[in-house]
Nucleic acid binder design. Structure first.
Lengths: 204, 204
DNA sequence: CACACTAACTAACGCCCGTTAGTTCGTCGT
DNA sequence: ACGACGAACTAACGGGCGTTAGTTAGTGTG
């Protein structure tokens, strides 16, 4: 997230900082400089208040990280469940799961980068819970490909490797996507969904 | 790099720590906990010496990071140039470039994770130089796909997106690959090379 | 109009960081 | 046998960190 120096959305009202403002500032800075590379002084400076004032709106620095990570993982799970509920065929499910996952990483870049890079810094038991949520998504995503391979809808050498490749290629969108670049989030999401079907050799 | 707690290779001789030992310990810890999440005390503890003794073998903490990043990027460039020198067709070049890039990320996981996540913490001018080397690889990799699209060897909707997808899927190998898992580095590298050709709709 | 509440502030805490200085001690070449 | 060297050590530095305590001022409510 180095290059695009996009302005940070300041507090909504004219006066007082809210908990949402603090979370938003933390998202920007954790994504840009990393959790340990960001001090609460940086967060406070972005909000134009002094460091101790942050404690009116948050529990602790690690609490900020926990809230960002857990909320994001819950969003992803919710989106994934929406896909399974509305689509039945393996090809449809894989295309949709890929599309919403890629879309999420293009439209929530800061949160996605934080989940990818900073989750490891969570104290237990939050770390274990976060890892379990990620593994759950991993498992269910791979299951779609296994289903497609079993039914003959897909022709894929290694469902496991294909699953890794597709998911990680979506995750990486957060790393290179630029809001002012040549693609809209929907462009990327739809092309990635097509690429996913190619990767697993989906029969037409 | 959280799960596999693989043992750290200790100094080669029976007695004295070398500069290579320090670099090796730093690779392990920077990859595991991140640059700012690792203190020199951690590095020293892994080598079973006191913190100030490190300065007999290194310039500074940021110097360690610089050496790791620059050496890794130079390796990648060298490997890529070897591919271009020995292969002529777009399909051959793409397959080989993908294979060696994926292989590198499976066999040099620590270094790859550090380049991906910690390069941003380099002080200038090292940061600019590192970014330029990465962009150079990016450009030359994409050029292979553009060549293949121009010659009709490939049939691809967006060469730019395909290039992002393929490179990032290789980079991500460092994130999920386990030395004690079901795949050898060569398994992954060769399957990824095939997947790359599928992604760009390689004709023959 | 007084009261409670909230969100800002300053001051201070204990701790850990990267780094430097100065010292000891074993090894090896002369 | 001795002197130089290299690599380890202890002690100490200045500074930044996350966090707590205690205080002030402004806002909205009875």
């Amino acid at each position: 997230m180095q290059p695009t120096a996009h302005a940070h959305r300041r507090r909504t009202s004219g006066r007082s900082v809210t908990a949402a403002d603090v979370l938003d500032a933390a998202k920007t800075l954790f994504a840009l400089r990393g959790y340990h590379g960001t001090s609460l002084k940086h967060v406070a400076a972005l909000l134009e208040i002094r460091t101790p004032s942050l404690y009116n709106h948050m529990e602790s620095k690690s609490g900020l990280l926990r809230d960002i990570v857990m909320e994001t993982l819950a969003d992803v799970r919710h989106e994934f469940e929406g896909v399974l509920a509305t689509t039945a065929t393996p090809a449809g499910q894989l295309a949709e799961a890929t599309r919403v996952y890629a879309l999420h990483h293009a439209t929530h870049r800061r949160e996605a980068l934080i989940v990818s890079h900073e989750t490891r810094h969570l104290p237990e038991p939050d770390l274990g819970q976060a890892q379990e949520m990620r593994r759950d998504h991993e498992r269910r995503f791979r299951q779609i490909i296994l289903d497609g391979a079993a039914s003959g809808d897909f022709s894929v050498a290694s469902p496991k490797l294909a699953s890794f490749a597709i998911r990680e290629m979506c995750v990486s969108v957060a790393r290179w996507f630029r809001e002012d670049g040549s693609f809209t989030p929907d462009d990327v999401a739809e092309e990635y969904a097509r690429q996913a079907l190619k990767l697993v050799g989906s029969k037409p």
